[in-house]
Simulated assay, not measured.
Amino acid sequence: MNYIYLLINIAVIFFPLVLSFDKKVHFFSKWKFIVPAILITGIVFLIWDLLFVKLNVWSFNPDYITGINLWGLPLEEILFFLTIPYACVFIYECLNVYFPKNGLQKYSLALSNLFLGLCIAILFFGYRYWYTVINFGFLFVVLAYVEYVNSKLRFMFRFYRAYLVALIPFYIVNGFLTAIPVVIYNNKENLSFRVGTIPFEDHFYLMSLLLMNIYLYEWFKSRAIK
């Protein structure tokens, strides 16, 4: 049972890694862009993770982890920030290659404004909870930057499509992590509203994680083209 979280990480990355050599997507040829994107984003989220452990926002069930710790976090939690982003960016690239037409293009700015408004509303009502405040505050900053400061990279219509598809494996993986539970949430630090066993905030945690990875991935690609 100590290997549950580790096995979940392996399961998440197994098929995306194997299918990275698909002749049409050629995802392996883009590793030089995805690796730095994952590492930079991972550092930010690991600092966030450490802070949340210190603040007792969440903790890890010792019955389902190996007990190997690095920088105060379980090895499996560190791997999470490698396996999940890799799988999600793989989904993003596959959708772009196999379905180049995207009907969300004309609605992406409206969607971003909707999410920015949602962030402001939730920050207003949930200012007492650490997870809620940091989660929606971070998403607001990243999303506002990508839409209104960044003027050259336009990819949000592709991002929203990938996010919607990524929610399917998200419900499976996070469902396991929160139902067993591997990750134990302190409900005094969140809105205490769950979709099944998954905290409401987790949906937007995924959005922030995926958005930062894809922005950096696209940025590194654009630099290479220049």
Rank of each mutant, 00 (worst) to 15 (best):
T132P: 01
A121T: 06
L167E: 10
N186D: 05
L114R: 04
N135R: 08
K106G: 13
Y131E: 13
F99H: 05
V57G: 10
F45P: 03
F115T: 03
G103W: 09
S59F: 06
K106P: 01
L70R: 04
G126Q: 00
Y160M: 04
E93W: 01
F80M: 07
P169E: 08
A110N: 00
W130N: 06
N186S: 11
N135V: 03
F90Y: 10
P100T: 03
F80Y: 01
L73D: 09
E77H: 02
F140Q: 07
N69P: 08
Y127M: 09
T178F: 05
R158T: 06
L114M: 09
L191P: 07
Y86E: 06
Y145P: 04
I47L: 08
A166L: 05
N150V: 10
L50H: 12
A144V: 13
F138A: 10
Y145K: 12
A179T: 11
L164K: 07
L111A: 03
A166Y: 04
P74G: 04
V183Y: 05
Y171E: 14
F115E: 14
L70M: 07
F176Q: 10
G175A: 10
V141N: 03
F52K: 08
W58E: 06
L51A: 13
L164A: 11
L109W: 07
N69W: 05
L164M: 03
S108P: 05
E189S: 08
L167C: 12
Y131M: 14
G137C: 09
F90R: 04
S112E: 06
L177V: 09
P85F: 08
C119Y: 00
E77Q: 14
L79D: 11
F52W: 02
L177C: 04
I120C: 12
E147Q: 08
Y160Q: 06
I47F: 13
T83C: 07
L123E: 14
T178K: 00
M156H: 12
I91D: 00
N135T: 15
